[in-house]
Structures are given as C-alpha cells and as structure tokens.
Design a protein around this nucleic acid. Structure first.
Lengths: 233, 233, 233, 233
DNA sequence: GATGAATGAGGATTCATTCAT
DNA sequence: AATGAATGAATCCTCATTCAT
C-alpha cells in the first residue's frame, strides 16, 4: 500500500512537470540539467527519480500532456461537425478560435516553447515522434474527413486533395506557433482574422442565398454517401 | 600567407559542414558529438577547430547557409513581382514552386531536419534566433508588400492585414516542412497543388476575362500610388 | 539541509587538499591532472567538483591555507613584541625559530614545494598574487614597525630604511625556503644560527652591560613616542 | 654545409628565445603555447622546431642563458677578491651592486619573471634543477670561501658556519627578486643600502684604524693558511 | 630551410543517475 | 518516501609536434 495519498503523488508529479517545463522552455531539453529541475521543483534528485525513471521520461510525459490537450480541443470540433448540418468553414473557424486563441495566453508560452522543442526532438527520438505524430496525424485525418464531406456537398472544390488541404490547415497552426515563439509580438488577433477570411474564401463564403443553396445540396450529398457506404459493408 | 589554396579551404569547410549536417540530422545538435563529426568528416579534431572555433560556430554556419539559400530564392520572386504587371497569385505560386518543390529533393532531407532543429535552437540561442528570424522576417515583409500592392490594385480584399496574410504564407511553408520531416511520405505534389488552389482563390483566379479586367485596374492603381508617393517626398 | 556532518565535509576537503598538495608537489600545478588528484584522494571527479569549483580553486584554497598558517605565526610575534620592553633582536630570533624551524619538519616538505610554485604562479594569476602578497606584505609591515621602534630606542641604527630592512628579513626566509627546496640537505640548524648571529650584530648584541644600557634608553624613547602620539590626537 | 650563415642561425635563435621569454613572462611556461611563441617570433612552428627540439628545450636554453649571465658577474667578484688584500665586506658590496643593481633595469623584468618560474620548475624538472643549482651552488661556494678567508683573517666572527652565511647572502638576492617580481614598486636603492649596511656590520666596518689593523692581521692569517695547505699537499 | 595545415592524445569539467542513510 | 553526496562515463576542446609541399 502506498505510503502517501494519491493526491500527494499527483501533486508531486505536477510539481516536477511544471518545473521541467519551466527549465526546458528556458534552456532546452539538453541544456537544462536534472539539477536545474530539482532546484526549481524544490525537491531532491532521488525524489524525482521516484516519479520518473529518467530525464527522457519527463520529456515524454510533457509531450503526452500536450497531446492530451490537443485531443480535447479536437473532440469539440468533431462533436460540432458530426451533425449533418455541419459547416466546414464554420468548423475550421471554430478550430482556429480554439487553437490560435490559446496562443494569446501568456501563461502558456513556456509550454509552447517546449512544444517547439518537442517537434525537433521527434526527429531523433522515436517515442517522441510517435507522440508528436499522434497529435498531428489524428487532427489531420479529422480535418481531411471534414474536407471530404464538404467536397461531397459541393461546399469545397473537389479538385483539391483533402489530405493536402488538411495539411495546410495544420501547417497554418504549426507555422504560426513557430513565428510566435520567435517573435512574441506576432499579432494573434490579426492572424486569427486572416485564417477566418481564407477559410471563408475556400469554404465559399458568398451571399447568404449561396450558402443556403450549398447547404441543401450538401444534405443530399451526405445522404447519398451514407447509402453507398452502407451498401458496401 | 596561407599554405593551401582558397579552394582547398572551401572544400574543407564544406567537408566539415556536410559531415556536421549529417550528424546533426541524425542525432541532433546536442547528441551529436564533435567526435562523430570528426569521424564522418574523416578529419581530426584539431583540423576542425582550425576552421570553426566551436561546435556552436558550426551550427551557426549551417544556419547561415540555410538563410542564404532562402534569400536567393526570394530574390527571384522580388525580381518577378517588381514589374507593374506583377500578379500576386502568380508570384506566390512561383514561391510555392521553389520552396515546396525543393522539398522533393531527398538529398536535402538532412538539411531540412537540421533546419527544424535550428527552429527549436533559436528559442534559447540568441545568435541562432537572429539568423532564423532574418530568414523569416525578410520574406514576410516582402510578401506583405506584395499583398499590400495587390490590395491597392483590388486583386486582394483589403479586409485582411497584409502582415497576417504574409504570416499565413510563411506558416504554410514552415508547417509543411515540419510535417514532411516527421513523415517523409507526405505528398509534396498534392500540397503544392493545394497551395496554388488557395492562392488562386485568394488572388481571385477566375475567368480569363476577369483576370484581364483586374489587371487593367491594377495598372491604374499602381500608377496612382506611385504619384501619391512622389508628391509626399 | 546537508546530508553529512560538518566534520565529514571538512574531512573530505582535507582529503582533497592533501591529495592535491601531494600531486602538485610532485608534478606542479599544470602537470598534475585532476585525474591524478582524484586517484590519490580515492574519490571521483564529481566528488571533488562538489567541494571545489575548479582546479584553480583548489590551488587558491591551498594558497589560503599557507597564508593562514603564516598569519598565526606572526600573531605570536606581535603579541610578544608589543610589550614596551620588547627586544627586536629577540623578536626576530623568535620569528626565525618559528619559521625556519618549521622547515625541519619533513612532513611539511610537500607544502613548501607547493609554496614555491605559488610564488611563480602569482606572477600570472592575480588571485594567487593577492594571497601571496597578503602573506608577505603584512609580515613586512610588522617587521618594519619593529625596526622603526628599535630605531627610536636606539637599538638599531636609524640610517637604514625600515622597510628595506624588513624586506631583508623576509628575503632571508623566502630565499632559504627556495634553497632547501632545491637541496633538501641544506643545513637548517646552521642557517638558523647564522640568522641569529646577524640579528644580534644588527640588534647590537654586545656585552650584557651594553644591552642593559640600551634597554633603559629604549624605555625612555618609547615613552616619549607615545606622548608625542597622544598629543597629536 | 649549412644553407644559412652562422649569424643568421644565431639571430633566429635569439629571435625565438626573446619571443619565448616574453611569452613565458606573461603567461608562464605551461600557459604559454608554442603558437604564442610562434606568433611573437613572427616565425612558423616548423621553423622553431628546426632550432629547438621541444618546448622544454627552449626553457632549458633560457635557463642556461640566465646562468651564464650570473657566472659572468661572479667571475668579476672572484677576480677582485682573489687578491690577498681583498676585503670581504667590499666584495659583497660589489656583488650587491651588480646583482641588485641589475634589478633596476626594467628591460630585464621579463627575464626575472621567467627566472622565478624556473625556480619553481626546478622542483619537478631535474634538468632545470641542475641548471638552477649550478647557478646557486657555485656562487654559494665562492661566497663561503670568501667568508672562510675573512674568518681566518679575523674580519668575520668564526662562530658562524660559512656555508650558512653564504646561504644568507644568496637568500638576500633570491628573496628580493621574488619581492620585486610581486611588487615592482619595491625600492631597489633602499634595499641595496640596507644590504651594504648589514654587510658592513658583519664585515666589521669601524674606524679607519680598525680596518687597517684587521687588514694587517688578515695578511698574516692568509699567509699561514697557505703554508699549512702547502704542507698538507 | 621554411611553412602551416593537420594530428590526436590528453585534460578539465559536466551531469544523469544511484544508493546508503 | 525522501535525501543529497557520490559516481564515472562522456564531452568539448587544446596544443605540442609532425611532415608534405
């Protein structure tokens, strides 16, 4: 039986991970020493090794946390877009709101800086790569699905590869996170607006009548698609 | 008086930098040891330190090279877009061709992987940050200038912040480089096409007649802008 | 909160410094490697760096110790010579006994050899120079003060610069330490006797009656000096 | 047959040794690199190794030069003191003039600083020790001989060990060289005067009549000594 | 003889991790 | 569970020396 309560354990883990994020954001994974983390966490080396088997495991735990957060955001999108009346442009706008909006939070800056380092770390650490890819591939698949549906409905031109389109959306986020990490003065609000504008242009924002027509067509298309799918299975 | 020719010196530098890029791409800046680079370059530690004062300086030299390459690409865009008959959508498409097209070259893969690491390194190394930002801010300013001109001409909606628009373009590149680094199977051709499509949608590709009309308007707008500018000075 | 007792820490420091003195005496500061010290101390590199930040700091610590020892010897002289009935020749003889006498201790040989190296090191290391000078300037000032008082009392000729005289005394020690370091067979007892003889000749050894006469004069001179000093303040 | 003239060779040697003395004075033997010497000499590494087989050999050559200089000074003393009418006090004063007087020459400062380092180096380099000892033991023997003769003549008390007495004289020089190296402001003139005063006190400066009496006695003593010696052989 | 690029063993220091208390 | 002193392999870099030109 554990000597300390579960709450205590969780608090310790938090304490360590927070300290680590701080140190990693400041110095990078490789420059930050365990001693730094130990100091910042106000613990001892031994205590930390009681919770994490290695420095690497701390990095992985942080990567996991980041990924969990993104998955949570995505879940909301899916819920919204799953309805047959979903509007791709609107869904993407919502995604933009959530993701890019989070960039406004200065308390999150350290985490974002660590995130960027994880992207680089993924290139040489397969475990990190898996975590990072999970955080990118899943969103991409979901966005691609949205796009495909929008194409079926005629809301988006069928000429574009849905996966490539999804990659563009992902890139718009990744690329801005980078730019903001390098230049904290980057204007989040303006970027958000630009994203929406583009989303609108693609999603075919036009007159209100246009949108209604497209939506009607979309419902029919969706129905047909479902039927074909059911017949196949 | 140098004992060896300038060519020999340059070749040695190349040899070292190539070895370093290889090692860095494989292991990252921090895991790759000087000994690794020494081995791969087929030289001795002392020989390397005759050309670079430190491991860090090698990293910087690599960052500089990357930046130089980007500047060269940009120069072509500018040259093209400077003409009054320049077409933003076309200029961006050209940019996309050059940049993303380069991603197809597998020989460049190692360099791109190192590039991603430089992005992370920039977060804690001010010298690298400067180099990276030079490579990003300058393109951004040029693209923003293109956008501004397109807006004056009516080719692009004036509602979007040109700088944010430029950040999106940059992000589309940065973000795809990341995705391709994580997943070498990412489809470059499809992404390129998607980029062009979006560029077209924004730049207002339409019927050939539409384009001709817009161009005529653009010429007038450009002329007016120049006149106002001259009067101010 | 330290894990080990203060005593343990001090013992470790001692262990390291002793090992270092051994190595330095044998090989010199520059030839002796940290690995040598590590081996001789029976510790690990990390353990040593827990107590001293650098090899240089070990050298400084050793220099400090040497200086502390000298200061302690000097303190005794001062205490003795402060009495108004003090006899310069006797005080110097005492100094000679203590300092040169210490040279007889073969256990101290290693320390003396290191001391000589510190003298050289002082020429290029300002921190060592400060320590060495503290160990030399202070004694010099004190001896000069003794000489001055002796001159006032008529025990020493007023023709000699007290500071130069003090430098000669210092030189007599420094110079013999060198000679003994080069030639451990140098006869300490004989040197000690020679020192005393010279001290006597200068201090005006003569018949017992002479000494008594001089002492009486000295008491008067000291009294006058104190009075003049009091009047000034 | 040599490709260059002997003069050229000597000039090169000088050039190298001068550069080395400069560097050693500044940085010490161990910190000064061959590259430093190469730079300062305006030569190439290869060129230097054409004249000296190793860094160590350069150090030894410098030590040899120092020693040669001292031997030359001593030779003059000997010449002077060899006459039966020699006066010890006078000889020592002359010695003091020469040696200490040389300390006034600021151009020699670098050499003196290197000399001090040689003293330390002698402790771990047997070849340097031999050179240093040759430079110290020989003077000591000669001074001891002077003292012995003075004792025979009654000019000096027979109670002091001549060798110890000589060591004191040597120490007075070594010790002042050290002090001046640490503190270039040390007053050479005052020290010289103090030396003479002490020499006088020991050598028994007194009335002119005293000196004449002592000299007469000295002549007799010398003659007796020679006769005893001849009888023995 | 001279050059200087190259060599490579060696040195100081760091830091993730362990384990006795 | 927690502590923190200790470990020691690994790292970056230096520099005396060599040798092809």
């Amino acid at each position: 039986m554990p000597k300390v309560s579960r709450e205590h354990q969780d608090a310790r883990r938090r304490q360590i991970l927070d300290a680590a994020v701080d140190c990693f954001a400041r110095e990078g994974f490789h420059r930050a020493t365990m001693q730094d983390i130990v100091r910042r966490a106000g613990l001892s080396p031994g205590a930390i090794y009681g919770y994490f088997a290695s420095k690497e495991e701390i990095v992985e735990a942080i990567a996991d946390e980041r990924h969990a957060r993104e998955r949570a955001l995505l879940a909301r999108i899916d819920a919204e877009a799953d309805g047959s009346s979903g509007d791709v442009a609107r869904a993407l706008a919502r995604l933009a709101d959530d993701f890019v909006g989070a960039l406004r939070d200065p308390g999150e800056r350290a985490h974002r800086r660590v995130g960027v380092q994880l992207w680089a770390e993924a290139l040489r650490n397969p475990r990190i790569l898996r975590i990072v890819r999970r955080g990118v591939d899943e969103p991409r698949r979901r966005i691609a699905a949205l796009v495909r549906r929008a194409q079926r409905r005629g809301e988006l031109s069928g000429a574009i590869d849905p996966d490539a389109q999804a990659r563009m959306v992902i890139a718009a986020f990744l690329g801005f996170v980078l730019q903001q990490a390098w230049d904290p003065g980057a204007d989040v609000a303006a970027y958000l607006q630009a994203l929406r504008h583009v989303g609108g242009a693609l999603g075919g924002a036009g007159s209100e009548r246009d949108r209604r027509v497209r939506k009607a067509r979309a419902r029919v298309a969706d129905r047909d698609h479902r039927r074909r799918k059911e017949r196949r299975s």
